[in-house]
């Protein structure tokens, strides 16, 4: 980041904090609710965006995140309700995500199926399978993940509630943001991953096995989406319902692009989109506007379209050069 960009960023942050403080002073409970909702909505988007960026950084587009969310949520919910263990449910969600990541890799990397088609296959399969096996009578006997207070930190007004009194998968996601950031930009794996997304031929000539690394990355990334699914069923909602991912797998891709395919950037973008979601919820709860709730519900998606179009205009960042292309040796 250039110096003036950094200054702009810090200035923006300060203004933001001041605005939040003013709102908090004016209406404490409402502000807290909206911000807590922001973090809640951002968690799922951040997980999806990380899944997307690991794929795209290695040159593989993943538009199947929506399906990965949905089927993993289903697996997590089903296993948790059968075993009465949220932990096992979470593991099942991650496992399902890995499995779907592996399937995407097998199609897009192994069989060199068009990546968009491969992702679409996942989405359709997830929707069909979950609708078919959906069992209305099943419920989560143990209840969903509950908040864990981080000692005295949780007692800080506003900040405590918003950041330090959260359920476990939210903390895990925040930790993963750091892990993925370090891995992508500092580790050997990350350097090679970025290389195969930009110029797989160059990576090949220095002995990097492009197809294997892509296979591995797309699979691992699926685990992140799987965690997202588990989060959705076991932490955010506490049950499973048809098509409950509700387009957020796609929204996560917008978040990823807007966040320049970096974890922290994506989290900032996820918070922004999460904020529109939380605001919309609050509007609906309070009946702020006298219009049908479906229209208020469109708010996050309208903002997405605007933001993606805008960032396209600004031309913020170009895609990895080999994005979407299969790699042939020689």
């Amino acid at each position: 980041m250039k110096l003036h960009q950094k200054r702009l960023l810090y200035a923006g942050l300060i203004v933001l904090l001041v605005v939040i403080w003013i709102f908090y002073a004016a209406n404490g409970p409402q502000t807290t609710a909206v911000l807590a909702g922001t973090v809640r909505a951002a968690t799922l988007l951040a997980l999806g965006a990380m899944c997307g960026m690991i794929g795209e950084r290695s040159g593989v587009v993943n538009i199947g995140i929506e399906g990965q969310f949905l089927l993993s949520a289903f697996a997590a919910f089903t296993v948790a309700s059968m075993t009465s263990s949220l932990f096992l449910g979470t593991i099942a969600g991650i496992g399902m995500g890995l499995l779907m990541g592996w399937m995407l890799a097998a199609m897009a990397v192994g069989l060199k199926v068009d990546q968009i088609i491969a992702g679409t296959v996942l989405n359709i399969a997830a929707l069909g399978l979950t609708s078919f096996f959906y069992d209305r009578s099943r419920s989560l006997g143990v209840g969903k993940y509950t908040n864990i207070d981080l000692g005295p930190l949780a007692d800080i007004p506003l900040v405590g509630t918003v950041l330090f009194s959260r359920p476990p998968l939210t903390y895990l996601t925040m930790a993963l943001l750091i892990v993925v950031h370090v891995a992508l930009f500092r580790s050997v794996w990350g350097m090679r991953t970025r290389a195969i997304g930009e110029h797989p031929g160059a990576a090949d000539t220095v002995g990097i096995d492009v197809l294997r690394l892509r296979y591995f990355n797309v699979t691992i990334a699926g685990g992140l989406a799987g965690l997202g699914g588990a989060y959705l069923a076991l932490e955010a909602v506490g049950t499973f319902s048809r098509a409950m991912s509700g387009g957020r797998g796609f929204l996560a891709l917008a978040v990823m692009i807007f966040g320049r395919r970096t974890p922290f950037g994506a989290y900032a973008a996820a918070l922004f989109f999460g904020f529109t979601t939380a605001l919309q919820n609050q509007f609906q709860l309070n009946n702020t506007f006298d219009i049908p709730p479906q229209f208020v519900g469109m708010l996050p998606f309208i903002v997405t379209i605007l933001v993606v179009a805008l960032s396209g205009l600004i031309g913020s960042m170009r895609d990895p050069a080999a994005l979407g292309q299969t790699y042939e040796k020689g």
């Binding site: 970025r194 930009e198 110029h199 031929g201 160059a202 990576a203 050069a321």
Partner: peptide
């Protein structure tokens, strides 16, 4: 013959 370098790196 065609350079094998990763341009943005």
């Amino acid at each position: 013959q065609h350079f094998q370098l990763v341009p943005p790196m």
